Simulated assay, not measured.
Amino acid sequence: MKSAKWWVYHLLVGGFALLMLYPVIWLLMSSFKPSEMIFVTAKSLIPDPWILDNFSKGWEGIGGNSFGVFIKNTVVLVIFTMIGQVISSAFIAFGFARMNFFGKGFWFAIMMVTLMLPYEVVMIPQYIIFSKLGWLDSIKPIVIPAYFGHPFFIFLLVQFIRTIPRELDEAATIDGCNTFKIFYKIILPLIRPALATAAIFSFYWTWDNLLGPVLYLNSPDKYTVSMALNMFLSNETVSNWGAMFAMSIVTLIPVFVVFFLFQRHVVEGISTSGLKG
């Protein structure tokens, strides 16, 4: 027979889980309500009546572009950004963790300082630079900087690589491996949990990013899902809350799928480190 402590623990955890999930449940239920009734019947969670028009109207999109166009744009942006951030961060982290060069500590400290800088500090200088390069109204200002590393991912990977014994590098050198082969054949396979963690965080941050696309994308056919959701709200006419909530549910599906499929890698990447011996 299970003890009272077990029941109390699970009741508390379940209660907190429902409390945390309530906004998502409310969002889901509201997506089946008429727009004009969402806030009128906000205290009533169950829709009455249930309607599906919000999903069809929301999928029609904005400016002659269906919501599928915005999802496609976001997927392309996420893939290129994620690949760039993970690969470049792995290279840079390997350099900081394994190679000796003049001023390594100084440059690592500079890199850590950039991690603490809010984006608003560099937003205007970056916009001026990209404007002079003619990159506005394209994904270049968002994607290309990703191929120069991300400070958080670099720091995560450096700490992970430092736990891998250097004897493996020395043994590989004796076998005739150069620096690149050591990185490719020794380090990369051992840091897969950390790479997976970086990729998942990159996916989340890029998928939800609104400020970057708003700054650099002007054409409606290049909008991302975050921009499209924002366009359902209007200061001049009636906001289409129902369509926005319905499409918000649609955009949450990839996030939940990625989380449930790869949550084990996130835990491994944060809680484990290199080799255990």
Score class of each variant (00 low, 15 high):
153 F>P: 07
89 S>W: 10
15 G>A: 09
124 I>C: 02
79 I>C: 04
156 L>R: 04
16 F>E: 00
127 Y>S: 09
171 A>G: 09
67 F>G: 08
159 Q>T: 06
236 E>H: 13
60 E>N: 15
18 L>Q: 05
75 V>L: 10
277 G>K: 14
179 T>Q: 14
257 V>C: 01
250 V>S: 08
87 I>F: 15
159 Q>P: 00
154 I>S: 08
78 V>C: 05
3 S>Q: 13
69 V>H: 02
165 P>I: 09
45 L>H: 07
28 L>S: 11
28 L>C: 13
177 C>F: 11
145 P>K: 10
138 S>L: 04
35 S>M: 13
275 L>W: 02
80 F>L: 15
74 T>S: 02
152 F>K: 00
165 P>K: 08
170 E>P: 03
229 L>M: 13
275 L>E: 02
222 K>D: 06
21 L>N: 06
28 L>I: 14
80 F>A: 12
268 E>S: 13
34 P>I: 08
140 K>V: 11
99 M>A: 04
122 V>H: 01
275 L>C: 10
73 N>M: 07
227 M>V: 10
217 L>Y: 02
245 F>P: 02
58 G>E: 10
144 I>N: 02
140 K>C: 00
152 F>H: 01
138 S>I: 04
259 F>K: 08
185 K>A: 12
127 Y>R: 04
275 L>G: 04
185 K>Y: 14
10 H>L: 09
70 F>S: 03
26 W>N: 12
72 K>D: 01
252 L>D: 00
39 F>A: 09
153 F>M: 14
269 G>C: 09
252 L>C: 00
73 N>A: 04
155 F>P: 05
234 S>P: 10
153 F>N: 12
205 W>K: 02
77 L>Y: 03
228 A>H: 07
96 F>K: 04
34 P>K: 11
143 V>S: 10
41 T>K: 15
271 S>I: 13
219 S>H: 06
168 L>N: 11
241 W>T: 07
143 V>H: 08
64 G>Y: 06
92 I>D: 05
44 S>I: 08
110 I>K: 01
209 N>Q: 12
